[in-house]
Design a protein around this nucleic acid. Structure first.
Lengths: 249, 249
DNA sequence: AGAAAATGAAAGAATTTGATTGATTTTTGA
DNA sequence: TCAAAAATCAATCAAATTCTTTCATTTTCT
């Protein structure tokens, strides 16, 4: 991994955590402790962070919102592992579709730069543009709650594209009904995007496996699930119907 | 657990409790009594708290209150005056187009709620959704520099709409060539949006009137210029070709 | 290929930590 | 009130962790 890439990852993590341990960064970047130490030294010289014994701390960041943020960061680790693996599937030159949603957003820092991204996720735009990734946005109705573009116009807009791969988030995965999401409109977008892709991937941490179905959106056969730990019973239940890639820490 | 992280937890607990016992902190941080004592000593030296027998107490003055940044006075900038007037032209039930750009964005706080907005400006989305205004986004290529959606897809996406009014920003206004903008792609979007509107308005403070033309985008006849002060000579120069509404303070 | 830069590993120095000990303070109970 | 008991405290030390420095190896650039 290139130096600027590592630096970017480190600073990104610091935006969320305010304090990071060396070991976390070693895991995140898959490099040695020495390299991380060198990175931290450089970043400190550039006044991007402050080194502390055992890791690094954010400089100007807000120290005053631990309760909510702290909780979300604990749930962030599996999400990020999944995202990192998913991003490794993307090859240079690919044209990919990114579904709206926080899980899928985690992919962005790990994506190669020389690709084209199409998305209906408003939250994705800034991180993508900051990385200088060519980005197309689906047109249509802007839904406030999920920051997604949906509706009839979105479907029409989406139809003009074809994708090498698409990465979808879901609210739940149901062994019989398929991937579920509470909004029929969003479901239609997801389904269309999947049908426009040569390969489809669903990002889901284990909490999403449940037997509560809201809206059937697509048969399990058509996509690969990328998830973290999964108890054997659940896995067996799904394995006959779909491909499951389990990302371990 | 890293030292600053413990310190943060201790101070946070002190915000809620005003007095904390050593044992509470041991439980909270999962460390030893010795460590907590050392932490308290350090935090007392830094004047963050006062040690008391059995624990620590919050001290009176709150240093941690970064005084709220003073909201801008009632001194309305020209941009805002123009925006406020422009917004007053919008009636309930209207469907309007908002061009990308910071000048046009100023309109948003003044818009009536019961309208439909279509835009190619990524920066507009959040303020619009926060006001619960129904918002549609044009699809297409996301241009980083101006945070605008442009390109062939954007034109196609735009074509499906019709507007009661549209509000455009410009880089310059040229008496002969018309409204100018440095990007041909953006110019095409602007031109199409204007042609799809029953009425078109151009928002421009006086600094935009200049004789430097980059790209002609539309005849002056088709739109009304909303601007602030304008010297008589300039005004006369344009008046025969377009409608000018001058907003005064 | 050769030079320059980046990387990973290792050794010793420095820091942090937890347990212990004895001193000090607070509480208890007659 | 006073002394014993209990709780808290500061000081110390050894173990664990982390840090810096150094050097050989790999990668990258010319």
């Amino acid at each position: 991994m290139l130096t600027p890439e590592r630096h970017r990852l480190i600073l990104q993590l610091l935006k969320e955590k305010s304090i990071v341990k060396i070991q976390e960064l070693v895991d995140l970047t898959q490099t040695s402790e020495s390299t991380i130490r060198r990175d931290l030294t450089q970043l400190e010289q550039g006044k991007f962070l402050k080194r502390i014994h055992g890791g690094a701390a954010r400089l100007q960041g807000k120290l005053s919102e631990p309760s909510m943020t702290e909780k979300s960061t604990k749930n962030l680790q599996p999400k990020r592992q999944i995202a990192q693996y998913a991003a490794s599937l993307v090859e240079e030159g690919d044209c990919i579709y990114l579904d709206a949603g926080s899980t899928v957003m985690e992919i962005i820092p790990f994506l190669p730069k020389d690709i084209v991204v199409v998305t209906n996720g408003l939250m994705h735009i800034n991180p993508l543009l900051e990385r200088n990734i060519t980005t197309y946005l689906i047109g249509g109705y802007a839904k406030q709650k999920t920051n997604a573009i949906i509706g009839r116009g979105a479907l029409a807009s989406l139809e003009h594209y074809r994708f090498d791969k698409c990465f979808m988030g879901v609210n739940g995965i149901h062994s019989q009904f398929g991937y579920t999401t509470p909004d029929q409109e969003e479901a239609m977008i997801k389904q269309l995007a999947i049908s426009l892709s040569r390969e489809a991937f669903v990002l889901s941490d284990d909490s999403k496996f449940s037997e509560i179905a809201f809206a059937k959106i697509v048969d399990l056969h058509e996509a690969t699930i990328i998830t973290n730990e999964l108890d054997p019973e659940t896995k067996e239940q799904y394995m006959s119907k779909t491909t499951i890639k389990v990302v371990t820490s």
